[in-house]
Design a protein around this nucleic acid. Sequence first.
DNA 1: GATGAATGAGCATTCATTCAT
DNA 2: GATGAATGAATGCTCATTCAT
Lengths: 195, 195, 195, 195
Amino acid sequence: MAAALELFAEKGFSASRLEDVAERAGVSKGTVYLYFNDKEDLFRKVVKADIIENIDVFEKMIESHQGDIAPLLKSILEQIGKMIAETRLGAIPKIILSEAGNFPALASFYRENVVKRMFRLFTALIERGVHTGEFRGISPPDAARIMMAPFLMMALMTNSPGFAEAVELQPAKHVETALDIFFTGILAENTGERI
Amino acid sequence: MAAALELFAEKGFSASRLEDVAERAGVSKGTVYLYFNDKEDLFRKVVKADIIENIDVFEKMIESHQGDIAPLLKSILEQIGKMIAETRLGAIPKIILSEAGNFPALASFYRENVVKRMFRLFTALIERGVHTGEFRGISPPDAARIMMAPFLMMALMTNSPGFAEAVELQPAKHVETALDIFFTGILAENTGERI
Amino acid sequence: MAAALELFAEKGFSASRLEDVAERAGVSKGTVYLYFNDKEDLFRKVVKADIIENIDVFEKMIESHQGDIAPLLKSILEQIGKMIAETRLGAIPKIILSEAGNFPALASFYRENVVKRMFRLFTALIERGVHTGEFRGISPPDAARIMMAPFLMMALMTNSPGFAEAVELQPAKHVETALDIFFTGILAENTGERI
Amino acid sequence: MAAALELFAEKGFSASRLEDVAERAGVSKGTVYLYFNDKEDLFRKVVKADIIENIDVFEKMIESHQGDIAPLLKSILEQIGKMIAETRLGAIPKIILSEAGNFPALASFYRENVVKRMFRLFTALIERGVHTGEFRGISPPDAARIMMAPFLMMALMTNSPGFAEAVELQPAKHVETALDIFFTGILAENTGERI
DNA sequence: GATGAATGAGCATTCATTCAT
DNA sequence: GATGAATGAATGCTCATTCAT
């Protein structure tokens, strides 16, 4: 699965050859089919192991969390930022975005199990903060959307060779700035200032 | 070329079969090769006719423009937003982003002829505004990057079936909001307020 | 037809594109079909105009010839050698040899109208010389075959880039030597010497 | 590879369809690509296995040979004649001759690995014979060229359906005669006679 | 007479998937 | 459990030929 993630990250889903995945994993082509029904199944299992597992962890963190929301939210976002920066996981949303049209089952799986869950998770978290008065009275789903956008952008840029360079963009810094704006400007308790 | 754009938008570059392009255009496979050297050439010519032509127009508008910068900038951005919303042109950056790794020549062509030109164009325009005091003293390239991001997001979302729906996002509105923030918060003449 | 000969000489029959023939002739592809039924017909007409015409001439020369045979024979062979050296006509037997299997109709046409006629022509001529005692009592068909071989070799070598160079062979010289052997050794009036 | 040689012999290189090779070999199209990178590679490997292997053998025979040169030379030539007569190997030089212009890489490979090696081999052998006084003082490369020519002719004739028949030529006999002339007339120790 | 736009059968090559060993 | 040989559908591209203008 690690080999698959690497290759998917480099070439996308349909351009990755099962044979290359096998070779990189040091097994034979046939062996891949012992563990995965087909190419889509392999992709799904990569997503499950690498992303959905993490969402499970986040959900448990949130459930058991007590006290201020902001530190938890920041911690989760930092972890996500780190993953995108240090692993090839950011390639997965890029692949889904790219190939959604050609692999609707895959896209649908990802939407249900990743995008929607993350969206619900963030929405709920922000809602909690708004309830307790920790955050301003912004619409939680709107805030969640605004918050998620720069991460998607970072994931895309980090995994599209040449694109970021063309506009001299540093993905990690982009996220940092966006989150700074987000936290101080959007979520900060209403003090009457204009964001 | 219209048929090609449609198909590329639906399936991406490599998953689009030349034969389908031909069929949709109402001609035979061979006919396509009378007008385009190969698939990459077809794509390049679509980009040229549909995007680069517009950049030429924008550049001429800018050259001959006199007076305040903001209205011109807004007008250009509006046109871009309209194109993304009403045509399938937004699929092109999506395709480039998706398939850059597998078609480096195409990606490089796009970077040089579209991304960099747009970036220079916006940077120069903002710089003019900063010079005349119309805009705040923000770094023009930074401002250009921030300004372009939501359009890329809009282009991606509009052309990835199901993605926007998953987070209940309205791409056009997303851009509007982002630009509103941008113009009032980032470019507005410095009045001492925090953005 | 000149353009066709050139191209056939360069690339062989099936690898020559009708479009290139047309272009080299300065006309359009369609025009070719005004004058030739198809590609094979074009080839046949080239053969007819460039080779069969010459055979007709040779036959007439022979018919009207009086006196010693050797000078006439030498003159004909010299003309053939010159044609191979100075025009691209030598490519035609090469093409036939090469593509006989794939274009049996063409091969058969060439055999009947060129090879057999030349063979008969030479055989008859040598026979005349043997009859008059000018040549030794060699079997005329054998002599004709031996005489024709170096010309075929010359035609092949002259029209196969790199082949002659590989064995440092000079096609024209090869023919000259072979004919010298042929005339002094094989056709010379029997003087009791061993050839 | 046997199937490939057969088909190449029948149709030449470019007119042979990989699918037919596969079918004749009793495998599927894809299987061919498991063992050969592409069509050219297949051809090259046929040449290597069927011809270059034999040249290696000849070279070893020569190296270890002691005593008179003529018997060794005759033995090698006989083997070559036998191969041309009894297998389809003679088709290979024919193909190279025919398609050299369209597949320069193939032609160059053949020139370097077959033609030049055979030429050097024969030249060296004759040179040895001349040194020891076994052969007349003829120029070894000239002799090698003259010796090789009838084999090329035989290979061409044997593999061009209809050509030999058109001049009632028996390729094998042609070689025999030519070699007889060659050995008694050209290589025979100088006895003062004219060849 | 000449054009050139259009056609579509044809071929080399790729790769997900299967299965006997 | 693992292999790797085998498959064949799929696709980009070519080119002889046709035909309306």
